[in-house]
Computed example of a mutant assay.
Amino acid sequence: MHVGNIYELAQWVQRRLQEGFQLVHYIRHPATIAVLKAIGIPLSEQTNSGLYVYQPNDIMIVVTLRNPTRGQEQTQVSPQELEAWIVTVL
């Protein structure tokens, strides 16, 4: 499911956390972590380049830049530059 507004994603995450879901992130990009934390998603500050391990019924959130630039590291990202999808692992 595509999430059109990144702020809606923050609300969705908060509801899942209240339901008892656990939040684990695999984000290597510090600027993305910073913007997601700023909109209310409680992530650890540390980047994580670990590998995802499948668990039945996992719900994944995929966050990308709307217009990435190949070979350039962005040091600042705004919420408007992000797109997100919610994916249920079958």
Rank of each mutant, 00 (worst) to 15 (best):
11 Q>I: 10
48 N>A: 09
10 A>V: 07
49 S>M: 06
8 E>G: 03
44 S>V: 15
28 R>Y: 09
1 M>A: 11
85 W>H: 14
90 L>D: 11
45 E>W: 01
35 V>I: 15
59 I>F: 06
5 N>P: 04
7 Y>R: 13
87 V>F: 08
18 Q>D: 13
15 R>E: 13
66 R>Y: 03
84 A>F: 03
10 A>F: 03
8 E>V: 01
87 V>M: 11
87 V>A: 05
63 V>Q: 00
20 G>W: 07
28 R>C: 11
77 V>A: 01
33 I>C: 02
8 E>S: 15
51 L>Y: 06
70 R>W: 07
35 V>R: 01
4 G>S: 11
14 Q>N: 09
54 Y>D: 05
63 V>R: 00
62 V>N: 06
41 I>V: 09
58 D>S: 12
62 V>M: 12
48 N>L: 05
38 A>H: 10
10 A>H: 07
84 A>G: 05
89 V>T: 06
81 E>H: 06
24 V>P: 03
65 L>V: 04
71 G>Q: 10
19 E>V: 03
28 R>E: 15
31 A>F: 01
66 R>I: 08
34 A>V: 00
59 I>A: 05
90 L>A: 13
54 Y>G: 01
72 Q>G: 00
48 N>T: 00
61 I>R: 09
18 Q>W: 08
49 S>I: 07
22 Q>F: 04
61 I>C: 14
90 L>V: 11
88 T>M: 07
24 V>K: 15
6 I>T: 09
82 L>Y: 04
26 Y>Q: 12
30 P>C: 08
81 E>V: 04
52 Y>H: 04
81 E>R: 03
14 Q>G: 00
40 G>M: 10
65 L>G: 04
7 Y>K: 10
89 V>C: 05
44 S>H: 13
16 R>M: 15
43 L>S: 04
73 E>Q: 12
83 E>F: 00
26 Y>T: 08
36 L>C: 04
33 I>S: 00
2 H>M: 12
75 T>F: 15
25 H>Y: 13
9 L>Q: 01
8 E>W: 01
8 E>A: 13
34 A>Y: 01
48 N>F: 09
37 K>E: 08
79 P>D: 05
75 T>K: 15
29 H>G: 06
9 L>N: 02
50 G>A: 08
83 E>A: 12
32 T>N: 01
60 M>F: 09
9 L>V: 08
72 Q>M: 09
56 P>M: 07
71 G>H: 10
74 Q>D: 10
52 Y>I: 09
44 S>G: 14
41 I>A: 02
29 H>V: 06
39 I>C: 00
78 S>N: 12
61 I>A: 08
66 R>P: 01
1 M>Y: 06
47 T>V: 15
4 G>K: 14
77 V>G: 01
13 V>L: 04
49 S>A: 14
90 L>G: 15
21 F>I: 02
61 I>N: 02
12 W>A: 07
74 Q>M: 08
88 T>K: 14
40 G>P: 05
1 M>D: 01
34 A>L: 08
25 H>S: 14
40 G>N: 05
67 N>V: 01
90 L>H: 12
28 R>W: 10
4 G>P: 05
83 E>G: 10
23 L>N: 08
23 L>P: 03
37 K>D: 06
28 R>A: 15
24 V>H: 14
14 Q>C: 01
60 M>H: 12
85 W>Q: 14
84 A>V: 03
38 A>I: 04
52 Y>L: 03
1 M>F: 10
16 R>C: 09
23 L>E: 10
